[in-house]
Each structure stands twice: as structure tokens, then as C-alpha cells.
């Protein structure tokens, strides 16, 4: 049994000119502790796909199975990190942001604090536990968001281009950190991006989507050991293969 499975997901948006198909017959599976990247041009339905898995959108046809059971609506079993830095609650310190999911689960205060600090340490922000989001840089805010999405121990971590709005140097640093966090926590990750190099750097496997409507074009396994050298011949060849699938040639 797969950890998470998408079974021929079709999603149609209702528009004035009738239904617009964003995703058609989309199927793939994710194994436990796998790092899966979904790559595609903007407008190929990546975010729609993530919202379906997250339970924010109900697929028109098809089903999402988590541990063999169909997913209905939102829940504790999926953690989400968005692209927008504004996702943190400005009225809560970094630590209290990370505690939010645990609070909703009814975890007692002392334990909440301990877990939150552990996850802040994991993203190397334990010194900023008492800072408010507006006092942190964009990269630090995204790290808090990652800690927040992991702290209540969801079965899958969903990430929607979390580093797209960061500068190139910070982005590289964040990618390295994310790989470390993933190895430490053994989380199953679905990471959506339009950046091919990022996907090759992070993923065990890349699902390539083609747009209008979004369908799975190809799946590329990246077997390179980590940490990966982004300038190696092997890395560039993987990148070329993915770009080739994206270009449709």
C-alpha cells in the first residue's frame, strides 16, 4: 500500500463559459518518507493539485488516499507551507506560531512549549523563539512556517513554492536546510515548484506536469546521493531530462 495515492484526479473550475478543466485524470503515488517534487509551468494546476491534496478543494472526480483511506476535507494529517510570508500569525511569537497546531490538538502547555522549541531548533531558530514574525527576515519566517507545519506531526508535508519569493542566496541556504530537516524527520514531502534545478536538488522523484489541463507527463527518479553538487555533470543531465519533458519534445 502506498503512503499517499492520487487516483485519477480530475478537477474542474466553474467559469462563466462552462467548466474549465484544471487537472485531468491525474494519478501518482508517494511512498513513506519520500521527497516528491511536482514540476510544471505556471498555470499547469500545481497549486490546484496541492489544494486538492490538502483538502481545501474537492476533486470533481477521483480520490486522494492517505494510508489507504480516502481523504475528506482538512485535517491534522497534512501540514502545509505556503509561498506567502504572511502565512504566520503576526500576533504570535515564532514559538507560539509553532504551537498553534498542537494547541488545536489539545496538547498541554508544557509539552507544547517543549515540542515547539525542538522544532525551532531543527530549523535553527531557537534564539528567535520570542520574536514576532515582523521582526524576522523572509527566510526566517519561512523556516518558522516549516517548523509550524511539522510540529503537530502530520503524515505528509505539503509545500507550495515556499522559497520562490526569496533571493537566490537565501533560497540555496533554505534548500540545504530543508534537506537536513527532511532527513532528520523522515517526513513524506510533496513539494510543488516551477524551478527545475530546485526540484533536482531536493527530490527523490519528480512528477512533471503539462498544462491545459494538468496531466502527468513523466516521472523522473533522481538517484544521486545527497548533498548534491548542482554543478556536476550528473545533476545537469537530470535537469536536462526534466526540462525536456517540460518542453514537450
Amino acid at each position: 500500500m502506498h503512503h499517499l495515492e492520487l487516483r485519477s484526479i480530475t478537477f474542474e473550475y466553474a467559469t462563466a463559459d462552462g467548466p474549465l478543466t484544471a487537472l485531468r485524470e491525474l494519478s501518482f503515488a508517494v511512498e513513506p518518507s519520500e521527497f516528491l517534487c511536482v514540476v510544471g509551468q505556471s498555470g499547469c494546476g500545481k497549486t490546484t493539485l496541492l489544494n486538492v491534496v490538502a483538502g481545501f478543494l474537492k476533486p470533481t472526480r477521483g480520490a486522494v488516499l492517505l494510508g489507504g483511506k480516502p481523504v475528506t476535507g482538512k485535517g491534522f494529517d497534512r501540514g502545509i507551507v505556503f509561498q506567502d510570508f504572511a502565512q504566520l500569525f503576526p500576533w504570535r511569537t515564532a514559538q507560539r506560531n509553532v504551537e498553534f497546531g498542537l494547541e488545536m490538538k489539545g496538547v498541554p502547555r508544557a509539552e507544547r512549549e517543549e515540542v515547539a522549541l525542538r522544532f525551532l531548533r531543527l530549523v535553527k531558530l531557537e534564539k528567535f523563539a520570542r520574536s514576532y514574525p515582523h521582526e524576522l527576515s523572509g527566510g526566517m519566517q519561512q523556516r518558522v512556517a516549516i517548523a509550524r507545519a511539522l510540529a503537530y506531526n502530520p503524515a505528509v508535508l505539503l509545500m507550495d513554492e515556499p522559497f520562490a519569493a526569496l533571493d537566490a542566496l537565501t533560497r540555496e541556504e533554505m534548500q540545504r536546510l530543508l534537506v537536513d530537516v527532511w532527513r532528520e524527520t523522515k517526513k513524506t514531502v510533496i513539494y510543488v515548484t516551477h524551478n527545475v534545478a530546485e526540484a533536482v536538488y531536493l527530490a527523490d522523484r519528480i512528477v512533471v506536469l503539462t498544462p491545459h489541463p494538468g496531466t502527468v507527463k513523466a516521472q523522473v527518479r533522481i538517484a544521486m546521493p545527497r548533498p548534491r553538487d548542482t554543478l556536476s555533470v550528473e545533476f545537469l543531465e537530470c535537469q536536462r531530462e526534466v526540462v525536456g519533458h517540460l518542453g514537450g519534445r
Binding site: 481545501f56 482538512k74 491534522f76 502545509i80 506567502d84 500569525f89 498553534f100 488545536m104 509550524r148 503537530y152
Partner: peptide, 23 residues
């Protein structure tokens, strides 16, 4: 996005209200 984040962390309506909408 605050509402979404809170919902993804399983916040029920009354918690959403008190801990997100109000502040």
C-alpha cells in the same frame, strides 16, 4: 491565508474565531 493555515492545522470554528479572526 491565516484562515487557511489555521484550518490546515485543524482549527475548529470557535478556535478559528477566537485565535485568528479576532486578533
Amino acid at each position: 491565508i491565516w484562515i487557511r493555515a489555521a484550518e490546515s492545522m485543524g482549527a475548529p470554528e470557535h478556535q478559528l474565531f477566537r485565535k485568528v479572526v479576532l486578533p
